[in-house]
Design a binder for these strands. Structure first.
Lengths: 211, 211
DNA sequence: TCGCAAACTTGCACGCGATGCAGAGAGGCT
DNA sequence: AGCCTCTCTGCATCGCGTGCAAGTTTGCGA
């Protein structure tokens, strides 16, 4: 059988990864064509040439097929936050992470997924839930920056606001966008200003303004 | 038959409302006892003494049984925002709305629902989705305050942040909550300071229609 | 009072997503 | 080759949700 040599991962492992990719792209193709809800798991199974049951060996649910790359992004962000140098705070790290993401990940496929998600209420909510997972990540990093005690809610609030703002940007700002770098900057920077302004306002408890 | 006179709504309508209430409370009882996911619709149907099919005549989905009162809250907020006097801006209106809610809605049942929701990841996400519905409401009101053009993302961002902060408060701030009024104030006011501080930081245009 | 029409309830059948299980199949190792 | 393990697959089953078409109740006017 002339088995080719295995570079690093097991030969078996690579096949799995390839199948995973086949399922994901076949599914996303169908989602784009006929809509998410109109695409059934048997449809995907047929298109990917596997059995329906097998799909669940690769993805825990139908939505996870659509959001497959999200977990990758999450880990990348976690790493970026963990490795950030002394001088850079969490907010700046996130800002740069977003800018970098929009430069590299502008693949056709990502935009297609984006359109699919934005076109459906249910999926937008699922995205929200996924983004919420990033909150604790960011909140923890901000808490470090601030030397905040466990009970301090400020990091949570700032992180939640950042995610919320990012979500708004994604929904309203990116309808059908190639997103040049400058455009993204123009969207993000006001958000950062907003967050830092809010944070500053919380540092001086003297400003207890009432209406 | 000496039919009693009907106060205002049709006699029929009142019965419907009563059935609705029966289903909701029976369901929430079961949710609290054995958990949300462990409770099936047939379980609820039996407890409420209706057929499974009938439940769907009253609630579009299982989650809607749990979040039944949410839509009421949403409309109340919409009204509060619509009727707010000249001097009071949207943020202050929301603040007072929250304070008022926590005074009146401290019923045992609400707290039980709160615990059910907070104890389950899926339900927390559903709550997020519901809260997101309030965003556009609040964003529209803030946009009025600011005389902001359609394209301006600031109202969206501020509203999203407010909702996000409220959600954080709800999750971390209210583990087991009788919530005296002062406690709630102590939680909300920093959030308001944060939002106003952020908003101020974004103001370089002269449109300073202040509250 | 009676009877009809509308509204409400229910059962039935079905589709879809998801899970457990067990047998068939292929891959990898000695 | 022989064996062991991991993967794939079909089958059965459950739970949520929906359409449909009967059955039952309610309201209302003749």
């Amino acid at each position: 059988m002339l088995t080719v040599m295995n570079p690093q991962p097991g030969l078996r492992e690579r096949k799995k990864q390839r199948t995973r990719e086949t399922i994901a792209s076949a599914a996303q193709e169908l989602f784009a064509e006929r809509g998410y809800h109109a695409t059934t798991l048997p449809d995907i199974a047929e298109a990917a040439d596997v059995s329906t049951r097998t799909i669940f060996a690769y993805f825990p649910s139908k939505e996870d097929i659509l959001f497959a790359k999200f977990s990758v992004m999450k880990e990348a962000l976690a790493q970026a936050l963990a490795e950030r140098p002394e001088g850079k705070d969490a907010l700046e790290t996130v800002r740069e992470f977003i800018l970098a993401s929009h430069e590299t990940e502008k693949s056709e496929l990502d935009m297609r997924v984006h359109r699919i998600v934005e076109s459906d209420e249910t999926l937008r909510n699922h995205l929200r839930a996924r983004l919420a997972q990033l909150e604790e990540l960011i909140a923890a990093a901000i808490a470090e920056d601030l030397d905040a005690p466990e009970k301090d809610l400020r990091p949570q609030v700032v992180a939640a606001s950042l995610i919320a703002a990012f979500n708004v940007m994604s929904e309203r700002g990116g309808d059908a966008k190639p997103h040049s770098g400058d455009e993204v900057t123009a969207l993000i920077d006001p958000v950062m200003t907003f967050l830092r302004g809010g944070l500053d306002a919380l540092k001086e408890p003297s400003t207890t303004r009432r209406s």
